[in-house]
């Protein structure tokens, strides 16, 4: 049971959220201009790193806002939480549990 700090509502249990997969995968501005391979990349190909991963979460049982989280896929340590639309923070500051 992860504890995730919604940027708006604060710390809540994982069960209040829906997972939204990899963050910063923008919908292509002009899908028609893409090759099948490029479009397929957008649709189906996602990173699966062992380590820090920027991913989207929706606070579905709370404020219904989408936001981004940097979570370590091995330790589950969450080192950054930031609103949708913001760039991934470069500096990873330690967050104590």
């Amino acid at each position: 049971m992860l504890l995730i700090a919604c940027p708006w509502c604060g710390e809540r249990d994982e069960t209040e959220y829906h997972y939204g997969g990899q963050a910063h995968v923008a919908h292509p501005a002009d899908p028609a201009a893409l090759t099948d391979a490029e479009w397929g990349e957008y649709l189906f190909v996602r990173a699966n790193p062992k380590g820090d991963f920027a991913e989207r979460w929706l606070h579905s049982a709370g404020c219904r806002r989408w936001f981004n989280v940097v979570r370590h896929t091995v330790t589950h340590d969450i080192t950054a939480v930031y609103p949708a639309g913001q760039a991934r923070p470069d500096a990873h500051t330690e967050v104590t549990a």
Partner: peptide, 11 residues
Amino acid sequence: LDWMEEWLQTE
């Protein structure tokens, strides 16, 4: 509703 909010908020 989640889907609509997803597009509105993130795209």
